[in-house]
Design a protein around this nucleic acid. Sequence first.
RNA 1: GCUGGAAUCGUGUAGUGGCAAUCACAGGAGACUGUAAAUCUCCCGCCUUUCGGCUUCGUAGGUUCGAGUCCUACUUCCAGCA
Length: 400
Amino acid sequence: MAKEFSFSITSRLSGAHARTGVISTPHGKIETPAFIPVGTQATLKALTPEQLAAVGAQAVLANAYHLYLRPGSEIIDAAGGLNAFMNWKKPTFTDSGGFQVMSLGVGFKKVIDMNGTTDEKPLAKKDKLAWIDNDGVTFKSHLDGSRHRFNPEVSMRIQHELGADIIFSFDELTTLHHTYEYQVESLRERTHPWAVRSLEAHAKLTESRADKPYQALYGVIQGANYEDLRRESARFLGNMDFDGYGLGGALTKENIGEIVGWMADELPEDKPRHMLGISEPDDIFACIENGADTFDCVSPARVGRNGALYLPTGRVNVTNRKYREQFEPLMKECDCYTCQNYTAAYLHHLFRAGEMLASTLATIHNQRFIVRLVDDIRESIQDGTFYDFKNDFLKKYYKK
RNA sequence: GCUGGAAUCGUGUAGUGGCAAUCACAGGAGACUGUAAAUCUCCCGCCUUUCGGCUUCGUAGGUUCGAGUCCUACUUCCAGCA
C-alpha cells in the first residue's frame, strides 16, 4: 500500500530551526506547528468530538496503555480503529505506553517538575506498579492490579490495533531525579534498542495489516537534559527510517529550547518533530523556535477541569472570590464558545457548585487558547513576525 | 401545661470526670506539562511573621484536686402527650 504519510516544509524562520509545514495522514492534514489535545481514553475529558473540533484541534492523541487495559485494543480494532470508535474524523496519534513506564514505575507524584526542585520521594518498591528490565516492562494495572507485560513488540501490536495515524516507539521516560549513569543506561540499553525493535515490529505489522490505513511511526528521543545524550539519541534515531520523531522526557524548563535545538541539529530536517507533553506558553515558543512541529499535553485540559484558565495576562483560578460578580466574559477578545456565551461569574458558580458544565466550558476555553496560540505562532513564522509576537505575548503573559 | 431529649468552630458533628476541639461540609488560597487527576496540598476561634500566647463547649450557680462531661435553676430548641 502506498505510504499515505508525508511532511512538507512550507516556510522557515531564518536563523533558527523553526519552520511551518504540513503533515499529511490518511485522516487528513495537520498544519504545523500545531497543538494536539490529549484524549487518553479515546475522549478528551468533558468534550464531545464535535466540541473538540470546534476549538480548532487538528488531531487528537490517545494512549495505548489505557486503551489496551480498557476496552482492549482488539475491541477498537474490531470497531474499525480509533477514528471510527470515537467518531473523530481528523488525524490521531497514540502514545506507546512509555509514559506509564515512568508514571507507574517511578512513582513520583510530581515527577515532571521541570525546575528540578521537588521534595517528593520515590514510592517504596512495594508501591510501584511497574518494573523495568532491558526487554520491557511488567505493569500492574492501576484499574484492578492485574499484571501485564509491555515491550516494543507488544506496544506496536497494540498501537496497530488502535489504528492511529501516527504512533510512537516504545521508550523509557526517565526523570530529572535519575543519575547521569542511569540516563546513559536507560538510553543505550532500553530506549535505543527498543526503538530498533519498534521499527522492526512496525514493519512486519504494516505488511501483515496492509489492508489498513498506513500508520506513521515516530522514534522517541531521550537523554534528559544532557547535551551529549540528547545529541547521541537524536543521531542514533535520526539515522533510522522513522517517519518522524518524538522529543520526550525530562527537560529542564530553563533551557528547554536549547535542548530541543540540540536534537534539531542532529535530526533530518525533512521529518516532523513532536514535543511530548509540553504546553506552557513559554515552553511552546522556545520549542517551536528550536524546531518543534507539534505538541501534545494534558495540561490545558487538566488545569481547566481544576478551575485554572489561561488569559493573555497569565493563568488564573476562576474559583477565586473576585470572579463571583464578574458579569462579563473571562476573556472578552477570546473567540471560544465559552467566552462568547458565558460570564466569568457563571463559570465561577459552576465550579463552586461542582457542575459538570464547569469542566466542559473551562476545557473548551483552555484548549482553544493553546490551539490558537500555536496557530498564531505558525502565522507569525509565515509572516516573519515571530520574534515580535513572542516578545509581546510573553511580556504580557509572564509580566516580565 | 406535662413528660422526655438536646445546646461544642460559619453549619452538621466527635468528645461521657484528666491539656477541648475530631470528622465532614461551607469558606480562603495554591498546585497541576507524552492523564492512577471532575484530583491534590495548605489555611480556616483571637493575637503573633515565627516561637508562642490568649479565649471558648446556651446562661448562672454548685459538686470535685480537676467539669464540655455530674447536680440545680434558668433560657432556647426538638419530640411526644394534653
